[in-house]
Simulated scan of single mutants.
Amino acid sequence: MGEFELISRYFHAPFANFPNVGRLIETGIGDDCAVLTPLSGRLVISTDTCVSGAHFPVDTSAEMVAARSLGSSVSDLAAMGAEPVGFTLALTLPTINEAWLQAFGSQLYESALAWRIPLIGGDTTKGPLAVTVTVLGRVQDQCLYRHGAAPGEDVWVSGSLGDAAAALSLLGRPDASLTPIERWLYQRYASPQPRLRLGSMLRGIATAAIDISDGLIADLAHICSASNCGALIEEGAIPLSPALLATFSKEEALNCALEGGDDYELCFTAPQSTRDLIQSLSADVALSRIGTLRKESGVSMQRRGEEIRLMTKGGYDHFKESSVT
């Protein structure tokens, strides 16, 4: 099988009849460029690359590679309050493995369908396994940014934190050996769920937002740095799932939430006057108010009556961090 047959069989054909794309995508896969109709509002774009041995273990299933690669990218759209428009895929493969490609392509389509984001183009080449996804989205009015927060505002997070980080210890184990609780944690890592609907509803309410990919400390610190302020969070307010607490000690669970990453929940800030309004948005996902912004820089945590300064590594650094293998 050659490159063009590969593209046609596993990507062009499945996405050819993707629903509800005609109004925005004039031409997708199959030409030199994708052609989009003029978009009202703002166009937002983000690119992420996942490399075997660095972002996922070398024996990771094709389904997980597809779900995580697209899910982590679409989460960036959620953090901006954007509606998905389309995505491109650059896939580097060491060899053509048809079974792997079938599994990868099927999961990619399933995930894209769930998030209503069609594949509109890309590239394939030979080399060590790597997946680069570029997502495009649009915002009709006001985007959510990392800057814009101010002292005195509340800090919120969606969902529960630390589950995906806890699942790292489960990678490589046979599925049959996992308990129901461990399998739930595993899925939190294997299949990120971008908070697209929440991000869209937060436009005009939240003053700043970010998706939690590098851990709560690092990503909240990004908001604080961009907004020229600091944050004080409450230990008891950080949402930890029953599954996480059943698997790890409270201290280990808290560390997973603070430093682990890969949650792809939203962290956002908002004026205190919007508390009731924000709580009304929690029908699909729980929302937790975990702290307050202040003038003093940095991120600190209130714990047992004592204020602890939380040190951040600044997020994942591809040129300093060790691989996941």
Rank of each mutant, 00 (worst) to 15 (best):
A176Y: 04
A176C: 05
A176P: 01
S177E: 14
T179L: 04
E182K: 02
R183F: 08
L185A: 08
Y186L: 07
S191A: 11
P192S: 09
P192W: 03
Q193L: 07
P194A: 05
P194W: 04
P194C: 04
L196C: 04
L196G: 05
R197V: 07
L198I: 07
G199K: 07
S200R: 13
S200K: 09
M201R: 14
L202E: 00
R203K: 14
G204H: 08
G204P: 10
I205A: 02
A209F: 12
I210W: 11
D211I: 07
S213F: 13
D214M: 13
L216A: 04
I217K: 12
A218N: 14
D219M: 14
D219N: 15
L220I: 05
A221K: 10
C224Y: 01
C224D: 03
S225V: 09
A226N: 11
N228L: 08
N228M: 05
G230V: 10
G230A: 12
A231Y: 03
A231P: 03
L232Y: 00
L232K: 00
I233C: 12
E235F: 03
G236Y: 01
P239S: 06
P239N: 08
P239W: 11
S241E: 07
A243S: 14
L244M: 11
L245S: 04
L245A: 01
L245F: 00
F248N: 06
F248W: 08
S249I: 05
S249F: 04
E252D: 15
E252C: 08
C256F: 14
E259I: 13
G260T: 06
D263R: 02
Y264F: 15
L266E: 09
L266H: 09
C267L: 10
T269E: 03
T269K: 01
A270L: 03
P271V: 09
P271M: 06
Q272D: 08
Q272Y: 03
S273Y: 00
S273M: 04
S273T: 14
S273N: 07
T274F: 12
R275K: 09
R275S: 12
D276L: 14
S280E: 14
L281C: 10
L281P: 02
L281N: 01
L281E: 02
S282M: 12
S282T: 12
A283R: 14
D284K: 12
D284T: 11
D284I: 08
A286V: 03
A286C: 02
L287P: 10
L287W: 07
S288V: 01
S288N: 13
R289T: 00
I290L: 10
T292N: 04
T292L: 13
L293H: 03
R294V: 02
R294D: 04
K295F: 05
E296F: 04
E296R: 13
S297L: 12
V299F: 08
Q302A: 12
Q302M: 14
R303E: 05
R303W: 07
G305N: 02
G305V: 03
E306R: 15
E307S: 14
